[in-house]
Design a protein around this nucleic acid. Sequence first.
DNA 1: AGCACGCCGACT
DNA 2: GTCGGCGTGCTC
Length: 723
Amino acid sequence: MNDTDCVEVLLDVPLQGTFTYRLATPLPVGTRVRVNFGGRELCGVIANGMNGPAPGVKLKPVAEAYTALPPLPGSLLRMAAFAARYYHHPAGAALFTALPTLLRQPRDVAPPDRRPWRLTEAGRLAPPPPRQRARLALWQALAGSPQEDDALRAVSPQAARVLAEWAGQGLAERFDAPREVKAADGLPELTGEQAAAVDAVAASLGRYQAWLLQGVTGSGKTEVYLRLIARVLAEGRQALVVVPEISLTPQLIERFARRFAGARIACLHSHLADGERLEAWVDAWQGRADIVIGTRLSVFTPLPRLALIVVDEEHDASLKQHDGLRYHARDLAVWRAHDAGVPVLLGSATPSLESVANADAGRYRRLALTRRAHAAARLPAVRLIDTRRAELTDGLSAPVVDALSGALARRELSLVYINRRGYAPVLACPQCGWTSGCPHCSARQVVHLQARVLRCHHCGDTEPLPRACPDCGNADIRPLGEGTQRLESALGALLPKARILRIDRDTTARKDAWDAVYRRVSAGEVDILVGTQMLAKGHDFGALSLVVALGCDGGLYSADFRAGERLFSTLMQVAGRAGRAGVAGEVLVQTQWPDHPLYQALARHDFDGYAETLLAERREAGFPPSAHQALVRADAPDGAAAAAFLQGLLALVADDPAVRVFGPAPALMARLAGRERAQLVIECTERARLHAWLSAAEPVLARLGREAGRALRWSIDVDPLEL
DNA sequence: AGCACGCCGACT
DNA sequence: GTCGGCGTGCTC
């Protein structure tokens, strides 16, 4: 068989490599096709390159080529190929995770064409006769100016049919309307630091450069993004903005829409219907959208005129995908910027240590916003309340209650942050020591008093609240510790006049819940917000005078080496909520360890100093970012099987003295949803050798995985965020 | 991941 | 006697 008769096809299967099919007439790389694979019809994508068929395999033909849309662009295929290599994930599966659902299916699809209509030269010269009144009305409307479908339908219900006819006769056509991005007026004046940041990044437009924009809360990072995007749009280019899930709020989108009236902004997030997502994606791909703003998945969106990538809150863990292709959107954004030859701007008040290290090493260039954009706004004063010396009522110390009651008297909004939802983190029997462990996970079931249930926050298992200890029958069982619900009711009892609004995953589950929250807060109907880190991120509640943080000490001495970094980052952000827009703010942190360097650094608002401390610790311990890590995970109903699987892998992968391997050991969450989890931690200071080890492990994993059977699942996680 | 093929229990 | 349970094996 001639080589030209074969193509390599990428398929959405968890198998390494491409598959070879016969093809009568050549198709461009990136074409979506339908093929038969193992007895089922699959969507495939024509790949670059030729592996040739495995010997002795009879090739099947490509059944059909989908042509409603152009072939996928090379830039997307390159990025997916890179992601597959870097994250050690099958190439086909990697590409398909980058596609909208509708393009993964073995069907030819295209979003509806919504471009406006206009008359062609010929159409202009051929007005319909006056007695064809509907046609004449349509013609007259179009002769005046181009028209959208909606407007034409209003002129005549026949519009769709008539226009299709005219299009066929070359009398009318759809066209890409030039967009006029109106310069918004009344722009806030930039601080010197903001202006310097804008100028620096603007000077790098047109080539690759990674920028780390470190700006304290309220310093106006978003304004820097907006100014740069304005420049990009003025050049007729496109910008990509990647934000964490929780930051993609209607507030943010509205701010962009207000600033760039007339521009087409494509929003990509998980709540979009398949058709909407496809349409936004194709609009970006075809250059009809000027700005793409979305969660981690949007990093893959094809953009033919891309000129700038922004990753906001670049430290946020939700930028990392936790299953399938375990990519980090920030890192892929940097790769993409390099590939496309454009600058990438990573913004955060509390950058990840990885990014700090990259800036220290000169790979990223630093920009700092150290002052708040409103001249009057000062950084809040941080006070540490030592709970070893304080009497606690439902977890609240007297200074905290006093401060809240003071703010209440002054009619100022306060925020109480506690990173635990539910009523109490555990139910316990003081007589026999029983605690409410989850039967499926190595975790505690949380007391939810309102729903009268115990619920595991890891697997979702829910059981009715027992009236007595299941072990000894003692009726005096008690909720231990505090969650948002308990705090809400405790505050209600201590400050009966206060209007309290609780915000956590339980209260904001409904779709329009946030609208109600904003309405109530801005109408001044709330005195105290109680909630989890949802309160810390993305949502602006205006002037807060007091922020209280409770129950944070767990992050100080955790088994997870990143816990301190995360806690510091969250506290910096939650503290940053205080004292905006001219109101002097105060932050109270209740802790048993007021002398801990983390809290001391927080009190000084000293991110840089604490980051250096943490980086030194990481260097000492050989942890990231001083070394690179990967995880090989295995889980099975039987823990011994998972460990044996990993042990078997170790026996078959050649040692590299530069690569340190730890394990098999139980994962931090050793048991999850009824499965025992074991893992290998692979560490190396040289990325290339880490990848070489993983590449050697891949085929062995595939084989051992097959032999171990269905009960065992395994995965590779490069640059894991959680161990 | 699917979906086939293939060997053991309760039904027309 | 079949319909169908889901155990393992392969897919260009």
